[in-house]
Design a protein around this nucleic acid. Structure first.
Lengths: 192, 192
DNA sequence: ACCTGAACACCGTTCAAGT
DNA sequence: ACCTGAACACCGTTCAAGT
């Protein structure tokens, strides 16, 4: 509908995501992005308000997915089954569609993301999701286990150095380790 | 001995570490560092070859500690007791002396560190240490658990949001969770 | 040995101007 | 609506020059 900007806006997003992931956000200049598109640096500012805002648009989908997941997680009972389901859905989201590239970008640019609005939003969502995962047990141990269970999904992308391992295998092992961590979070007494 | 540079070099390191941690490496300009010291930007280049090299000098101690720990870890038998001892020593190093500030810098600047020589060195050491921790079991699950055990130490700094928790408590809970993860790494058959 | 002043190429951003 | 050219203040780095 409001897609009046032809394809240029999408092409900028794609090229920026690629370069930001390869070289890092700060290390990639808008001149490079513009050159790759055969366009002038100033042209980018017709489509985006700032460099920061290019990242926001890339990360948008992911933020929405996380919001949906958080809402769902918070609506479920605080049981082990819920915790496992949340992590599994998270892993599904991370390993599916075009999210893996966004994911690699995220891993590469954690620090830069801190000073970007989109980055702070993402970080906030991670903490809310972790809180939802350890819902019903707010002990330090539970908080740490919840965060590490989410990290297990992320880490499986780079921590496992076995050659020729498939994405499916990475996911399986991530969930296996996450499950162990979650099992040590206490479930509150069942409510009548 | 070769400490001919009075105290300026050390003052630069201290101020840079502080600002880099607060605002991030890329977001901190050398002008800010210089101004804080009442000195000109160019003066910094008398003491350091580049901005990058300021970080290297800050991270130097830590690299040496990690080298020592890796060497020790690799010389020990591949038992659960060793894995636990490595993580415990790692935690001790992270929680002691002036390392906590370097640690926070490290957490804040993971991405920037990737394009810095010092950062790549640190990352390399982390992987070697993880490999040493899961020595004797190179399955994907073991690799992931080893990395997460190290992460547990790091994460305890920010993942646990309980107010008024002490550093000692953070360390205790980190080691508790790490121990669980390590227990699931297989020990090779004992050698005669 | 220690530091300054001035210059360098590059950065993100703005804006009047063109089609 | 879409893009350019030229300018802005700022960045990291260099270097001749001062003490």
């Amino acid at each position: 509908m409001s897609q009046s900007t032809g394809g240029t806006r999408e092409r900028i997003k794609a090229v920026a995501l690629e370069l930001f992931t390869e070289q890092g956000y700060e290390a990639t200049s808008l001149r490079e992005v513009a050159e790759r598109l055969g366009v002038t640096k100033a042209a980018l500012y017709y489509h985006f308000k700032s460099k920061d805002e290019i990242v926001s648009s890339v990360v948008e989908d992911r933020l929405e997915r996380m919001d949906a997941l958080i809402a769902w997680a918070e609506s479920q009972p605080a049981t082990l089954a819920t915790r496992r389901a949340v992590i599994e859905r998270y892993a599904d989201a991370m390993f599916s569609g075009e999210q893996p590239s966004v994911m690699r970008f995220f891993e590469q640019n954690q620090t830069a993301l801190k000073s970007l609005s989109a980055g702070r939003e993402l970080r906030g969502r991670m903490f809310r999701l972790a809180a939802a995962v350890c819902q019903g047990d707010d002990s330090p141990g539970a908080q740490l286990r919840a965060v590490l269970a989410l990290f297990a999904v992320h880490s499986s992308w780079f921590a496992v150095r076995t050659p020729e391992i498939t994405d499916a295998e990475r996911k399986r092992v991530a969930l296996e380790v996450a499950d162990e961590l979650l099992a040590a979070i206490a479930a509150p007494p069942a409510r009548p």
